[in-house]
């Protein structure tokens, strides 16, 4: 063994920012996460030039996957142009040479906070969701050693209790985001703070999804064609947000997840949460060339 075999030529920076040992650890954990869908795998969560809680978990997964031929899309609450999304996207392309895009159809890796795009993801695409709190049991069990034992025992009764109490208090399930869902019939996961509208998009999907929490140092995955079933009572069916009849005031599209914009007079207007879908629809209406892919929801309904 010589010094030369133990060292390598000087580099200003590792390709894709993370050093080789960080990537190897993430790779090992990502493979285990795929092997046990929905089960939270601990990982080291290295320092990245961004504060914990701002998407560092998703960032590390994306950095591990990146190669020069990758095309990255980053969204924050559905929008490509928010500060957080734009900064992450520009960082990713700077450290890897990957191309940036706003178009869901073009992207190979989609890193997202709080939304899954409305256009269907293909089998060759990877969705990376940034997760603030990966533990679905935290509201009912703050001790994470006990929560781990509950996952081991598949002891999820108290999650139904939360839903039951919401129905008793409010007449309906109030859980708006991070709706607890049973993955592959075994582990309950929190599908990051995506709205209920997006949960059915994970069920038996074509694409691979990674969910990664940098601050909490855990990652989990939903492989393609995996059952993701929101927890429900047999007599209270799962319902998505009542947005099917809303129309976007800018693009004119109806039947997708909308942002509500309060107006001065007390009313409100709505606009598409998936901003790039809206942009493409407006371009099409103006006669410019813009390809809109098939969407998960058709006429405000998710086909079964």
């Amino acid at each position: 063994m010589t010094i030369a075999t133990l060292t390598k030529p000087w580099e200003a920076m590792s390709y894709g920012f993370l050093d080789a040992s960080a990537k190897r650890e993430l790779r090992r954990k990502m493979l285990k996460a795929i092997a046990v869908p929905g089960c939270q795998m601990p990982y080291a969560s290295r320092e990245v030039p961004m504060a914990r809680g701002w998407g560092t978990g998703g960032l590390q997964v994306t950095l591990t996957l990146l190669r020069p031929s990758s095309v990255v899309k980053v969204i924050d609450q559905g929008a490509d142009d928010s500060v957080n999304a734009a900064s992450i996207r520009s960082f990713l392309s700077k450290v890897s040479g990957a191309r940036e895009t706003w178009d869901t159809l073009e992207a190979t890796i989609i890193q997202s906070r709080h939304r899954i795009p409305e256009e269907r993801l293909r089998a060759d695409q990877v969705l990376v969701l940034q997760v603030p709190n990966p533990e679905p049991l935290r509201p009912v069990e703050p001790n994470m050693s006990v929560a781990r034992q509950m996952h081991a025992d598949a002891d999820y009764g108290r999650l139904w209790l939360i839903l039951y109490e919401q129905i008793v208090r409010s007449g309906r399930v109030m859980q708006g985001a991070a709706y607890p869902s049973l993955v592959n019939g075994r582990h309950v996961m929190t599908p990051s703070p995506i709205p209920r509208w997006d949960v059915p998009k994970l069920h038996m999907a074509q694409h691979l999804t990674f969910l990664s929490a940098g601050r909490e140092k855990r990652l989990y995955a939903v492989p393609p064609f995996t059952r993701v079933e929101p927890l429900v009572f047999s007599d209270v069916p799962f319902q998505v947000e009542d947005h099917a009849a809303l129309t976007c005031h800018r693009s004119g599209l109806t039947g997708y997840f909308m942002n509500e914009i309060p107006q001065g007079g007390g009313g409100s207007q709505f606009e598409l949460s998936d901003s790039n879908l809206g942009i493409k629809a407006i371009r099409q209406a103006e006669g410019a060339e813009a390809r809109v892919g098939s969407t998960w929801y058709e006429n405000g309904k998710m086909p079964q």
Partner: peptide
């Protein structure tokens, strides 16, 4: 523009 070395690729 960063370029991956042979090992990284």
């Amino acid at each position: 523009i960063p370029v991956p070395d042979a090992f990284e690729a």
